[in-house]
Simulated scan of single mutants.
Amino acid sequence: MIDLAKGCVHEPDPPSAPDSVSATAVTVLARPVDPVGLGSWLAEFASSAQSADGFVESTTSVYADERLDLAIAVTFRDESLLNGWLDGPARAGVLRVGSARGFHRAATDLVLVDGEPTPPGVAVFRHTVTAGRVDEFIGAQRDLTAASTQFAGYEGTVVLPPGGSGEWTSLIRFRTERLLAAWLKSTERQDALSPLRSTLDEDFSTFTQTTPFGTTVRVEDGRTKLTPGWKSAMLVLLVLYPTVMLLSRFVGPILEGMGAGPWLTIWLSQVLSISLLQWVLMPFAVRRMRRWLDPVDGAGLGVTLRGVAIVGAGYVITLAIFATITRLQYWDYR
């Protein structure tokens, strides 16, 4: 456990699997009138999550300065496991105990799922802080917070020490997405960012968002970066080809047997294939190729070539399967 500027990190075993889509709940707390016992209650809060299935880590925000929110973030292996703990009796019990002691939630829990949009009005940033400059980084965050309070709709800033990723995380909340956008685009923010950047090894980045068809959108310092189109196309082809082949072999004959004409059979098959790709097959493939699709983490030559080799091997395997297994060749069953 690390204690830094009243921020704690708890790292249990085992960590989440690299290909899992982690989910984090950030609970923002009101400043207690009497902080006596706060540390022990935060430990109880973290303990209630540690005993739950899928727990990865919990992190308490830096809150020594009144301008920074008091919050605790809990990460689980996936969203369903996180929701199981959020709705479970263990967490409900520790919240009741906290309320009795004067520790209350200040806002609705914020749920952040890797690869999905953040809640409206919320922006999340990751920071790689230069060794020995943590105090300067926290000071820059305080100054940035002071500037943001001058804008309409500002609700708070959470600064979380590094967990398993090794990166600091800051989270800023505005009442609406429009008000948040006004702050992000403001000259006041740009002026306040210079001291913050000087404490970082590299420029900060936001959470990424990946579309169902394999395009990862990543915003860094207001600049939007996208997965190269050829990578998305390669992955779609890898998933689409076997899907169409199997639907043509097994679903097409059923539809034709029900009296559907070729024009309707093809249309219904396309509806089914697009639905499978949108909600089942592509999300599965994207999770396993997430780093390769990331326009920043996957930009290196080594990562790019490994991903191309994996997708290329998938092409070879699927082509070999449909070329050699006659039972799967739909043209023999017309």
Score class of each variant (00 low, 15 high):
1 M>E: 11
9 V>W: 07
13 D>H: 13
14 P>N: 11
15 P>C: 07
16 S>I: 10
17 A>E: 14
20 S>W: 04
21 V>E: 01
22 S>C: 14
29 L>C: 07
32 P>K: 06
35 P>G: 02
35 P>V: 04
36 V>L: 15
36 V>M: 13
36 V>D: 14
37 G>F: 08
38 L>T: 00
41 W>D: 00
44 E>F: 08
48 S>V: 06
53 D>W: 13
53 D>Y: 15
54 G>Q: 07
60 T>S: 15
61 S>H: 01
62 V>W: 06
66 E>Q: 15
66 E>N: 14
67 R>E: 09
67 R>N: 11
69 D>G: 09
71 A>S: 10
71 A>K: 06
73 A>V: 07
81 L>V: 05
81 L>S: 03
81 L>F: 07
85 W>L: 10
85 W>F: 01
85 W>Y: 02
87 D>G: 12
88 G>S: 10
88 G>F: 06
89 P>Y: 12
89 P>D: 15
92 A>W: 12
94 V>Y: 04
95 L>H: 12
98 G>H: 07
105 R>L: 12
110 L>M: 10
111 V>Q: 09
114 D>Y: 10
119 P>K: 04
119 P>H: 06
121 G>Q: 00
124 V>W: 08
133 R>A: 09
139 G>P: 08
142 R>T: 12
147 A>P: 01
151 F>C: 03
153 G>M: 08
154 Y>S: 01
154 Y>V: 02
157 T>K: 07
161 P>Q: 02
171 L>H: 02
173 R>T: 00
173 R>D: 08
175 R>G: 08
178 R>K: 14
178 R>W: 08
179 L>W: 00
182 A>G: 06
182 A>C: 11
183 W>M: 10
186 S>P: 06
190 Q>T: 10
191 D>Y: 14
196 L>C: 01
196 L>N: 01
198 S>F: 02
199 T>F: 03
199 T>W: 04
199 T>P: 05
203 D>T: 13
206 T>G: 11
213 F>S: 03
214 G>E: 01
214 G>H: 08
216 T>P: 00
217 V>R: 05
219 V>W: 08
221 D>L: 12
224 T>L: 15
228 P>Q: 04
228 P>S: 10
229 G>Y: 13
242 P>V: 01
245 M>P: 00
248 S>Y: 04
249 R>K: 12
250 F>E: 07
252 G>Q: 05
253 P>I: 05
254 I>K: 07
256 E>P: 05
264 L>G: 07
265 T>I: 00
265 T>F: 03
265 T>Q: 10
270 Q>S: 09
278 Q>V: 14
281 L>T: 01
281 L>P: 08
282 M>S: 01
283 P>D: 06
286 V>C: 06
290 R>V: 04
291 R>G: 01
292 W>D: 09
296 V>Y: 03
296 V>A: 08
304 T>Q: 02
304 T>D: 08
306 R>T: 13
308 V>F: 03
309 A>K: 14
315 Y>H: 07
315 Y>Q: 10
317 I>D: 13
324 T>L: 13
330 Y>T: 05
333 Y>C: 11
333 Y>W: 15
